[in-house]
Design a protein around this nucleic acid. Structure first.
Lengths: 247, 247
DNA sequence: ATATAGATCTCGTCA
DNA sequence: TGACGAGGTCTATAT
């Protein structure tokens, strides 16, 4: 595509807050929170209606370069072709896309107010444990939600049959050393805030799996691990679930 | 665009490992590590040459839905139009894109072997401190960097004038409670593995800023905070830096 | 605005 | 392959 034609289409689309997608041969220079450059290659560029910029190479989930929402977007002429200059004042980020060739251009004003409905998050997991405390043990009794927020970001808080407090940290994937440290911090905080001995505040990790070292560390602190999987419940689609993903 | 025409172009592009981009009116159903659905709306769909799938709404950096590399991609006919079915065996993820209308279609075999050259990462920061130890203090002397294997992933390791070991944890942004806990773990691990009293292993956080609570916790453990900014050096572009981002 | 922690985190690296 | 930690993390939430 001719750069002149591209520039016209581009400007029109940007000015009307359309979402833009095009392939191009380009170099990238970034400076801001860090500093980076990417030599000449073919990439997919996406510019969203909130002026988010994404630069994608042909593989991988993440953009190789990007600018966050509310960036400025200017397309200027240069020796090599065009330069897309962008600046984000909040992040203090600068991005230059030095465009040598453009292949294809698409833009559309997207209408989409829908939000993702997702289950299986850590929050769903802690809700499940609060509603079905026997998943932890026969003795575990959860306390009110207000109770646990007072003492920090504790997933589930309750007590056992012996009058000990129990703090539960949920992880939706394999718990690691960081999860154990996190739990340890909550236990120590509650112990000191309530003025009760550490032995009377029990720590427990609920996760589908736990790393070996993490389990050792957990047991060193006198904490427990309970194998629990995160729940997955989408009321709306549960009934037709089988047929939907059937091949 | 007619769905028939789209289907032909799509299949051809997928079979030749092209990178694909198109706008469409669609619903999304996802099941796997979690479970989600997204009601009808207009989105940008990207399919990369490694069969990564990205579904983008008109705002925000992250895709609202996605599939990781090496997913299967099949386009089937349905009552409502077309259904793009995808399955990732490694992640055990299923994704259905129920396509009602398609607007535009672009595909291209992207050639790009270039890798991002980035500076200002945490590793650059620890390298800088190792090379310029006076940034920490006049007394600090870094030791060889075998720490990685023996005592965990310690960023910088050395000793002070009094024969104490010093463990430094670098953060390129505001250090939080998690950073203090991480440092604490390294200090404890080295102390116990080497059999040295904890008082003779000093912990230090090097970061541009530290959260208030994190500083309190740091000082409770007898650790130190040193304000240091991550370096940003790209040899190639340093000289023309000003002109490159000049407007 | 800052702080805190999750994420269908993703990605690289090393044992 | 699992484990571990960084990320220009991004995002949501609470203060």
């Amino acid at each position: 595509m001719e750069l002149i034609e591209f520039k016209q289409k581009f400007s029109k689309a940007v000015n009307s807050n359309q979402t833009i997608s095009f392939f191009c041969l380009c170099e990238i220079i970034y400076d801001g929170r860090a500093k980076a450059n990417l030599e000449l290659g073919e990439r997919l560029i996406v510019i969203k209606s909130d002026n988010t910029i994404l630069i994608h190479q042909p593989t991988g989930s993440n953009p190789i370069n990007y600018m966050k929402a509310d960036s400025s977007v200017k397309l200027l002429e240069a020796d090599t072709g065009l330069v897309l200059k962008s600046y984000n004042s909040k992040q203090k980020d600068y991005l230059d896309i030095i465009i040598h060739k453009v292949c294809g251009f698409q833009s559309k004003k997207l209408e989409d107010g829908k939000k993702l409905v997702l289950t299986g998050s850590e929050k769903d997991m802690s809700d499940m444990i609060r509603n079905e405390p026997w998943l932890i043990s026969e003795q575990f009794q959860p306390l009110s939600r207000e109770e646990h927020t007072k003492y920090g970001f504790i997933d589930v808080f309750g007590h056992d049959a012996n009058g000990n407090f129990v703090i539960i940290e949920c992880k939706r994937y394999t718990a690691g050393l960081d999860a154990v440290q996190q739990l340890r911090r909550y236990v120590e905080k509650m112990s000191s805030l309530k003025g009760i001995p550490k032995d009377n505040v029990k720590g427990l990790i609920a996760a589908p799996d736990i790393a070996k070292n993490a389990l050792v560390m957990l047991e060193d602190f006198g904490f427990e691990y309970k194998q629990i999987n995160p729940p997955k419940r989408l009321e709306k689609y549960n009934s037709k679930q089988k047929s939907v993903f059937d091949y």
